[in-house]
Design a protein around this nucleic acid. Structure first.
Lengths: 253, 253
DNA sequence: CGGATGGTTGAAACCGTTCAAAATCTGTGG
DNA sequence: CCACAGATTTTGAACGGTTTCAACCATCCG
């Protein structure tokens, strides 16, 4: 019984059986959170690393006047960056977006294991650097793309990332975000997100019932990726299948 | 004679004398680059970690239609993220902005040292996580701030970072960036950067001769930081001297 | 000089915002 | 089963920050 977390870590480097087990122990007792709760708050020194096992969470920053920027989504299997290593006040908060199960791994245990076991250390580097690559891509998304391109890019990235943890069916997945949250992710207003989603629908790229089951279906993956100018390189999900682009279907693990 | 790089690394954790020396050896033979040259190109697997010892460099990403986003400035003492650990194609390029002296540290030597010497590993984590914090802040800058706020934020961040490596005089420093480069950093157009810089000048916040010596003087640091809604926490330059800032929101350390 | 690069200026167009209100769904309790 | 509160989505119209396009200026340098 290997946790999503370990499975995700292994997309970087395969881990010895032994290390897998030890990592699994660290997340054996996840804590349930309701939706819209803070897991870690900006300005505090967090004693634990955060691993999301179920549900969605995010990192976000607030400006003093209330404007908000979401800087990352934490999907099942994702961990907060190893920020805890620093024992310094967090520069951002982490909060749930849906009900979630979250493991809080004490810094010392994680650090100790990493220090002792090189493959674990490698896995943590992989995870961190991958997170950084996503951040860079988001910066290029927000800084240099139009509203439609931004949304297309986000939806496509989420498709690939959710595929990697088995949370998609074909080209459909559950998108629990509100339009306001999408806006805070992409540097737009909720109103404009709404209008832009409508044009994506009209253009036959996606299907999305906002109310109800919140199911998003990507009708035209190539079209969406093209609109987004999507280059999957930054997600580098794995060494093995050397993922390049719209690699539908072919997620052999 | 300790290199800027090591001095920068020690802003996170102090290093044993021995490790300092070994790190210094790694950057003993920097390579000179002209301005506007690529050091590492997107898509390639880089065999070396990049350390900038003199001059400015940046990381940037290109969209297929030529739009560009600069995702980081590499100032003297800064190193490229440990991206090289992955032995995967780079998701971005690194290029010089000015003539520069750059050390290329073979992956294996850096990795080996880090693996052997825990303080070195800690320093690399610190460096990487700090880079990530800056990236998050930039995302919040580009995603949620107006043009004037963005520019103010950038200029103030550069002030603090250059201060940390002794490249300022009072509140003045040399800003070698063109307005087009600032635009590519902040998700704006060169034209608008120009107009916005003018209002900052008119408002008595800065002094900047664009032609000539390229010297930027920040006339009203508090005003500039306030406009930018600047919170220096993310730079966490050091444990020791703690945040030195017009720290409006006084946080208990 | 003359050409190149980068900075400045102006006018028009546009994308995205703002403000405000209505519509749609969810959940709760009577 | 209906009523009602609350949250989210949708719609409309006016506004404005930023872009676009185009020209012109300033400085550097061979």
């Amino acid at each position: 019984m290997v946790s999503v977390w370990v499975r995700r870590l292994e997309q970087g480097t395969p881990l010895p059986h032994d290390d897998r087990c030890r990592l699994d122990e660290l997340v054996a007792a996840p804590v349930p959170f309701e939706a819209d709760r803070d897991v870690v708050v900006e300005g505090r020194v967090s004693p634990d690393a955060v691993v999301v096992l179920q549900g969605w969470a995010c990192r976000y920053k607030l400006l003093s006047d209330g404007r908000r920027q979401i800087t990352a989504f934490l999907l099942p299997g994702d961990m907060c960056d190893l920020h805890v290593f620093l024992e310094q006040p967090m520069d951002h908060s982490i909060g749930t977006l849906t009900p979630a199960r979250v493991a809080l791994v004490p810094r010392d245990r994680l650090l100790g294991l990493a220090r002792e076991r090189w493959p674990v250390m490698q896995a943590l580097w992989w995870s961190t650097l991958r997170g950084e690559a996503i951040l860079r891509e988001w910066l290029a998304v927000v800084g240099r793309r139009s509203a439609a391109e931004r949304i297309a890019h986000l939806l496509y990235e989420l498709l690939l990332r959710l595929q990697a943890v088995g949370l998609t069916e074909d080209h459909a997945y559950v998108l629990p975000l509100t339009q306001a949250e999408i806006a805070d992710t992409l540097g737009l207003t909720p109103v404009h997100v709404n209008r832009t989603l409508q044009t994506l629908r009209q253009d036959g790229l996606i299907e999305l019932d906002s109310f109800g089951n919140r199911r998003l279906t990507i009708l035209d993956p190539e079209g969406l990726a093209a609109l987004a100018d999507f280059d999957a390189r930054y997600l580098r999900s794995s060494d093995r299948n050397g993922a390049k682009l719209p690699d539908r279907r072919r997620t052999a693990d």
